[in-house]
Nucleic acid binder design. Structure first.
Lengths: 259, 259
DNA sequence: CGGAGCGTTGAACGACCTCAAAAGGTGTGG
DNA sequence: CCACACCTTTTGAGGTCGTTCAACGCTCCG
């Protein structure tokens, strides 16, 4: 496919860990051919900030692989990770409250398709498949965000962590050789804490407790292994909802009949 | 007489011409004529639950007046109000995680336009104005939701309350005769607490404190008067962002140039 | 070897929650 | 119109959980 990186920065020596990471770049997903053909493919590097404006105009991003996060930074050093964007997800820059210090940044390297919003809108008008894809993606992301909102607003520390781990496991996990699910943890402690509305200390303590209980282990840095997913699911009230939302393929967006 | 907002028979003419100076049903907003023509007008009553499915198919709702809330109820009695829908807002039922006990209900009486999703999608395909309206509405709502997420995830009790009050004041407030802004408070204490991720006791205490400080008063039930909006804004780190998002008219959705 | 960044852990404090009871408002039937 | 029951809101006291602050260990890199 289109592998030409349109945004190349000097890439002298990525960390050894990044080189070793030749598994699929954090998931890959089917994206309509029309989209891939018309968008600029951007290769993303860890930690990179993605400009929301693109030649002074609004933009649309479609994650092909890797992961992004949208964060908001308000006065007094208050930072919140609003949402994580995984492969297949679509983000329009107008979704971000730029006046609230919103930034879009890369947490897992991969590829992103970028469009000028005006061009994307035209493409969508001409191609029903693109319209459909966008609207399904936006709907799915909204539904997931609702669960995240409930978790941040109502869950205690352990429930939030369990919810996040379960979500990761369901989304990006693969069966491990020794049973259970193994998956990448795209965020560092600090970002994870900001995503869950906790502070990093408490998060660390909670994960240590989970590790001590045998529910979780870290075979390598930035990876996690959950031996018994059911036991983890016990810890979060959102388990059922997450299974319903993530368990199925990306085809269906709701239990209702779609167009 | 305060409680009985205008539930009288009022012809579904465009509100621009029929603006009453008395208590309009919680704001009214311009909606494309094509939409109003093709949708079913539903009169909403306080407390009513709105079915997300409509003849077994997905639906789209456009709030014409009044206000709705989307809540999620998870096991263990955990309840979170995900978002509030004000006049002009658009909601697609696929945005709601139905497996997470999502329900859409009325918090302020008014009118809602309802469409079958398939019909709405067709209409949007045929009418660029409708597409545009939907995408702007969704973008705006997402941007606002991001701020709310940051508030719930990172603010302390008083900051959350101040944020909510400020948002209400900016959205629906009108200048009071004795200076300051006066506005409806669409939610009861319990719902408000669930919206802010607090418990009702703490919320009540916090509002009492604000009242004691003279920042807030309640001329009548379900209404609030903020004498000095600037003083209230002092209390929330999101003040600037809220002003930027709500202060302007509904025309522009982002600082970028639109189509 | 030394420093920077990140993750972990402990102790003390304080914000928020829980529980319980009183006060205020609303709706119903006499 | 009143009495009553019912619900929501308010307020207080006490306990819990998460935050704060500081120190330590680890890994990676210079």
């Amino acid at each position: 496919m289109v592998m030409t990186a349109s945004l190349k920065t000097q890439d002298p020596t990525p960390p050894a860990s990044a080189i070793r990471m030749e598994r699929r770049p954090f998931g890959t997903v089917a994206i309509p051919a029309d989209l891939a053909a018309h968008g600029a493919t951007v290769r993303t590097r860890r930690g990179q900030t993605i400009a929301l404006a693109f030649d002074d105009s609004e933009a649309v991003f479609v994650v092909r692989s890797g992961a992004l996060m949208l964060t908001v930074t308000l006065p007094h050093g208050l930072r919140q990770v609003i949402t994580l964007l995984y492969p297949g997800d679509l983000f329009r820059s107008a979704f971000a409250p730029v006046d609230a210090g919103a930034t879009l940044s890369v947490v897992r390297p991969g590829e992103v398709l970028r469009f000028r919003w005006s061009a994307f809108a035209e493409l969508a008008a001409a191609e029903p498949k693109v319209t459909n894809y966008m609207q399904n993606a936006v709907a799915k992301q909204n539904a997931r965000q609702a669960i995240h909102m409930a978790a941040v607003g109502r869950f205690d520390c352990q429930q939030r962590v369990a919810t996040f781990l379960l979500e990761l496991a369901l989304r990006t996990g693969s069966p491990s050789s020794c049973g259970g699910l193994i998956f990448d943890v795209p965020l560092g402690r600090s970002d994870m804490a900001d995503y869950l509305g906790l502070n990093a200390d408490m998060l660390s303590r909670t994960m240590s407790r989970l590790r001590a209980s045998g529910l979780l282990s870290h075979p390598e840095r930035h990876r996690a292994l959950v031996p018994a997913i059911a036991d983890l699911a016990e810890l979060t009230p959102a388990a059922g909802s997450l299974m319903a939302l993530h368990g199925q393929s990306t085809a269906e967006v709701s239990p209702f009949s779609t167009v």
